[in-house]
């Protein structure tokens, strides 16, 4: 599946929620919209949860970039 852009997903969620709240849709359409919205929210949550904390320093060594863990001095 195509990668979900967080910001777009939030915008879409807003649109879907507003549409659904109007109550003009048929029951089938309402259920479809509901499922679409819940799926978007789930995907956003996954993006958040999948991220890993990583603080590194990039060092130039022999023209190459090496990555090492970085801890800021107090």
């Amino acid at each position: 599946m195509k990668e979900v852009k967080f910001e777009e997903a939030i915008k879409q969620l807003e649109t879907i929620a507003t549409e659904l709240e109007k109550g003009d849709l048929s029951l089938e359409e309402s259920v479809a919209k509901f499922e679409e919205g819940m799926e978007l929210s789930k995907q956003c949550s996954e993006i958040i949860e999948k991220a890993e904390k990583k603080i590194t320093i990039l060092l130039q060594k022999d023209g190459k970039i090496e990555e090492e863990n970085f801890v800021a001095e107090e």
Binding site: I10, L13, E14, I16, A17, L20, E21, G23, L25, L27, S30, V31, K33, F34, G37, M38, S41, C44, S45, I48
Partner: peptide
Amino acid sequence: LTLKLRGYENRLKNALSKKLEVM
């Protein structure tokens, strides 16, 4: 953001149950 997502989920759930109630 997490709170916002939960907020949307609640809005969706409420809207759908309202729809069901109306039906």
